[in-house]
């Protein structure tokens, strides 16, 4: 079993290998699916065997935990694991964990100081991995998100066109597509398409939205006349906004390939704010001494009319 997994990963990374052809033919209800394979025989049969491990660090805030659970419910090809001790959230242990669960990629929600949520997206074991800062989190439980859709139906992934501008966006797009796309014919997936993911770059952040698609229709494979025009979307949630911080060559480590030049860590921001507020007393004291010094250095001239009315 393990051997097979390995080989499938090799296929993902380097599909030109010969071993692919040795793959066991696909089974259908009536027997082997030979005909199809024959037809596609010349080009390689590509089978997406992505498996995703989703975990979080210890002491995660409930809001972020709910976000994680929402992500788990959206992605049928993922495995949820226990919280990881924050000391152990170094790369090697996480890599081991991913290996142990036979996964090929990982989403790791890291909560720090009960405030900041960082999200790691990693391909294991060969990388790359990305670290994001997560902002503007809304979970699916919020009541103003009124949509609903099948659990496990494959999402349609839409990307805004500015993902193709720069190499780092390109690599992020590929990562997101592999991690968030549910593999075709996954055994937990359902054969219909009723929701759509939006990944859009606005202001150098990746914004995520999830909408339910509602189309008026009678049959399964045909949309009614004008149905595509009448199609409406209802938001299901969750919402979040990813600010990429760094892209690493390996999984959870390795050489840094990209670093966001505009990024300031929330710690720095908080420190700055604190510094702005602090030092009120010290400033006051300083001003007082300065005034005193000034008065000493420029003494008032004696007033010649001072005792004019004194008699």
């Amino acid at each position: 079993m393990a051997k097979k997994r390995k080989h499938s990963e090799a296929e993902v990374s380097e599909p030109s290998k010969k071993e692919v052809a040795l793959q066991r033919p696909k089974r259908t209800l009536f027997g082997w699916k030979d005909g199809v394979e024959e037809k596609e025989g010349d080009s390689l049969i590509f089978r997406n065997r992505e498996k995703l491990l989703v975990t979080c660090s210890r002491r995660i805030v409930y809001r972020y935990r709910h976000l994680m659970l929402n992500v788990v419910s959206l992605l049928p090809h993922c495995k949820k694991d226990n919280k990881v001790e924050s000391k152990e959230s170094k790369g090697s242990t996480l890599n081991e964990l991913v290996e142990l669960r036979n996964c090929s990629s990982c989403l790791f929600f890291e909560c720090r100081k009960q405030k900041d949520l960082y999200l790691w997206m990693a391909k294991c074991p060969s990388g790359p991995s990305v670290k994001f800062l997560v902002n503007a989190v809304h979970t699916m439980e919020e009541l103003k998100l009124t949509g609903n859709h099948l659990k496990g139906s494959r999402p349609i992934l839409t990307f805004s066109s500015n993902f193709d501008k720069d190499p780092h966006w390109k690599i992020l797009k590929e990562l997101i597509m592999q991690i968030f796309g549910t593999p075709k014919d996954h055994r937990k997936s359902k054969p219909f398409y009723d929701h759509v993911f939006v990944f859009s770059i606005v202001d150098d952040h990746i914004w995520f939205r999830n909408y339910q698609v509602s189309v008026p229709h009678n049959e399964m494979d045909k949309v009614d006349r004008g149905g595509l025009d009448k199609m409406t979307l209802v938001e299901v949630g969750p919402r979040f906004c990813l600010n990429p911080i760094k892209i690493f060559g390996g999984s959870f480590g390795g050489p840094t390939l990209y670093e966001n030049p505009f990024y300031i860590s929330p710690n720095q921001i908080r420190a700055l704010e604190k510094r702005k507020k602090a030092g009120k007393y010290a400033k006051k004291i300083k001003a007082k001494t300065r005034r005193k010094m000034h008065e000493l250095s420029n003494p008032l001239e004696p007033d010649e009319f001072a005792d004019m009315w004194k008699e």
């Binding site: 080009s43 997406n48 349609i156 839409t158 805004s160 190499p167 690599i171 075709k184 859009s200």
Partner: peptide, 26 residues
């Protein structure tokens, strides 16, 4: 980055149904 991208990306001839990804102009 580009090298890594070519490493992880799926082969070009993958059918669209596998990916289900759409690029929309902003």
């Amino acid at each position: 980055l580009l090298e890594k991208l070519s490493d992880i990306s799926w082969p070009d001839n993958v059918e669209w149904i596998q990916k289900l990804s759409i690029v929309v102009d902003q």
